[in-house]
Structure formats: C-alpha cells, structure tokens
Design a protein around this nucleic acid. Structure first.
Lengths: 200, 200
DNA sequence: CGCTTTCTTGAGCGAGCGCTATAGAATCGG
DNA sequence: CCGATTCTATAGCGCTCGCTCAAGAAAGCG
C-alpha cells in the first residue's frame, strides 16, 4: 500500500530530536531536565514534543531504550564475545573507561547517573534504571559462573561477590568520569580492579 | 555577662530540627528536597526555617558539615589509626559496608549521592561535594604513599591509581547500598577490592 | 503595666514546573 | 479549489518552587 501520509508533515527529524533529548537527559539527569530544557535542545515547541513523544516519562523511556542500544551495547558484546570470564569483565571495564570519557559526549553512564536523586513523583523512572543496573549484576554473575563451570576460575570463587564488585567498580568509574576523571585515570582503575581476580 | 536572651524564645530545638533536615537531604538529595519537605520533616514553618538556618543552600552547607563530622568521621579515623596503608584502606571499605547499610538511616553516603543530578542553579552545591570527594582521593593517596615510603608496599606501586580505585569502589558501594544491597553484600565487595592490592 | 525584641503563623509573591486548549499553517485526497 | 487531516505556535492552565511580608504571640526590661 504505502499509503501516503495525510496532513501537514512534521517539520523536524524525529530521530535527530530524540538524540538531542538523549544528550540532555544524559548530561543533566531525568528530574533536573525540564521540558523547557528539552524543547530548547530539540529545537521544537512543547506541543510538538508531546505529539511526537508523549509525556516526559514516556520520552525518557524511549531515550533509555536508544541509549542502551547505541551506547550501552559494549557490555553485552564484551560478555558475549570474549572467550574467558576474566577477559570479558576486563574488557567491559577497560571499554567503560573509554566510553565514559569519550569526547563530544556527556561523561559517565546515563543508566547509572540519570536518576540518582529522584523525588517520589519520579520513583518509577528511578526504579526502572535500578532494575537495569541489577540486570547488569546478573549478567556479570552469569558470565563468571560460566567461567567457573568451564574450569577457568576456581570452584570456590564467590561468583555473586565478584559480580557485585564489578558492578560497583563500573558505577564508581561512571561517577568519577562525571567528577572529571580522564580516560587514563579510569583505565588505571579498571586495571586495579582486575587484580582482585583469583590468581592475579 | 551571660546576658539573657530577649524576645520570644524559639519553640523548637535547633539541633533536632537540623538533624531532621540532614536525614531528609540524605534520603532525597539536595535538589529533589523541597522547602515544604524540610518544613514538614522539621516540624516548623518556612519563616522559622529561614530565620534559624538561612536559605536552602546555607542550610544544606550546615547539614553537610554536621554529616561529615557525625557520619563521615570513620574514614579519617581509619586512615589515622591503622598502622598500615593496607589495613587503613581495608578498614575504610569494611566500615563503609556497615555505615552505608546501618538500619535507621538512609542508605549510602550523602556526600557521594546527594547532588549527582543537579540543575545549573545548584552547580555550586554539586561542586562543593565534588571537591570533598576529590579530597577523599587525596587522603587515600597520601596514606598509600606513606605505606610505600615505609616499605610496606612496593616502590613501583601506582599510588594515585590505587587511591582512585579505592574512591571508585567506595562510590560504587554507596550507590549499591541505595539500590538495596545489604551489609553482607557490601562487605563482600570490600573484601574483593582488597584482593587488588599488591601481594594479595 | 507598657516597650522592645524575637519568634510563629498565615498568606502570598514572582517564577518555573509539566502539560494542553486553541487557532492558524501546511499538506493530502477528491 | 475544497474539505479533511495533521502539524506548529502562542498563550496559558493549575501547581509547586524558593522565599518573604505582615500581623500577632511570647518572652525580658524598666
């Protein structure tokens, strides 16, 4: 069919505007980004924003979806592609040092930092990000457990402790990045963390 | 002298009200705590708050001062009292696991978590907390450097990397605590972190 | 008892919040 | 061209924000 669109066409590019919103939320967080901040960054007026993206919470949810796909994929790739658990987690941390300090982007991780301070009205958003962080812990644990099963790591390895430690380091690196730490400093943190692994 | 106070006496206890404000800021953060939240928690009306504590930013500064003295002292004590750098940092992390999950308190650390998401209007407050975190990194580095000088740690120890790693773990532990991690889980993170030390 | 001083209370300021009603502009099918 | 449709732009809704004015209450001093 390809029935042509009726009515007045949209005067802005939806993906471009969404990316602008993403950057704004990434830099300032969910609650501290106002609709006025968004419309300014996106170059559109409020009614256009609401027509194209729904309300603030819905827009943020779409932003998170895009963020995870476009900027958070390195974690899943490292865990899936590296042959050893140690290599996988080491690559996650070292790549995080790069990702979190990439020039031309807000520093740190949106999922980690965008809803740390949330009023009760934003509890759902904060909880959604918290669940994603918890899911990361589970992914680390799953990969480490596979490493134990494969004989790569000792049988008595405390899998969940190592997974939670990895997540804590990642979160610490993200805040350090926001506090101004550079790529080299974060890489040193990542290397230090890997020395905590069994048989280092 | 002891000139008695003239005029109507204050109807609330200043220290008690300040502690209530401290808990509220600790739990919800600087920007996401409103004056209405504070007056409700402190049990006083807005003009009384402003007369006794100044504006919101000034009140927060006093809250931070009390917080550091009352709840943040364990870091300085551990660094000063332990005979070795390794023992000092290990004690900081293990005590943090306890402090950050103490029942009857908001989880995590106010200095680490209260101003992660800050609008430009609160930039000064966010920067003040950032400076305190940076000061912590320097304190860790100083103690570790002393350990190297004392021959406790190898000459080629990367002092600033180990210091920044410690700070990152501490910050990660604080966020994990806010995300619901228990004392035991955080202690496991602390123990894991200490295995990253030279000669572990 | 006044008089002064200090605090409390209630009301409300201007500004910004998330969000939307309304009217006009731009494109379609016919 | 006409009407239907879908977007944009202005303006403003009710609400909350940080903060303060004005009036009254409670204390000490003479």
């Amino acid at each position: 069919m390809a029935t042509r669109q009726r009515g007045r066409p949209r005067s802005f590019d939806r993906d471009t505007a969404l990316e602008k919103a993403l950057r704004t939320f990434w830099e300032h967080g969910y609650e501290t980004t106002s609709i006025a901040d968004l419309t300014r960054a996106m170059g559109i007026a409020a009614p256009s924003l609401y027509a194209a993206f729904g309300d603030k919470k819905t827009l943020f949810e779409e932003v998170v979806e895009v963020y995870v796909h476009r900027y958070g994929g390195f974690i899943g790739r490292a865990l899936a592609e590296e042959p050893t658990a140690r290599g996988a987690v080491g690559r996650v941390l070292r790549e995080a040092a790069v990702e979190y300090t990439e020039p031309g982007r807000p520093p740190g991780c949106l999922v980690i930092n965008a809803a740390v301070n949330a009023a009760p009205a934003s509890a759902e958003v904060a909880e959604a990000l918290r669940a994603m962080r918890e899911e990361n812990v589970r992914a680390f644990a799953s990969r480490i457990r596979a490493g134990v099963a494969a004989g790569e790591l000792p049988e008595d390895t405390d899998v969940s402790a190592l997974a939670r430690f990895t997540a804590a380091v990642l979160q610490g690196m993200s805040q350090q990045a926001r506090d101004g730490a550079g790529r080299g400093e974060l890489e040193a943190v990542a290397d230090a963390a890997m020395r905590a692994w069994p048989g280092a």
